[in-house]
Amino acid sequence: MAKSKKAASAKASPKKGAKAKSSPGKTPVSRSASPAAPAGNLSTEALVAVKTAVSQNVSIDFTFTGGIGQATAILFRNGVLINMQSISETGSIVFSDVQSGDVVTINGVCTGTATVKLSTPTIPANPKNFPNGLMMANFLIK
């Protein structure tokens, strides 16, 4: 997993006391203004998460039942890793400055059942239930 890639400027704020870990990186700073650059453009703007008028905070709720679990959520924009956080028990991860078209990737494992719920509409639809075993999914933010 590409843990070395740093979240450029997205805010990371786990809530509800969940044991969420942000990927190593500098203190996130949101930038306002210009929209994200198109894919393939390797300018500074392309590699930086930029806060726009349509940016939103997206909460990802993980619920593990009948057992324990852990999961990692990764936010991609135009092929760039924007943010990555892990959780090791029922709780939430919050990605700030999420934009339409971003992809949230989930990798994890649960020994009972698990439910993943995002606070925004996605493709495929959420919440998504997982039986015991590996949990893997990708959600497109609408």
Partner: peptide
């Protein structure tokens, strides 16, 4: 799974 999500993004 991660790399596929990244590519599609």
């Amino acid at each position: 799974n991660t790399a596929a999500g990244k590519e599609i993004s």
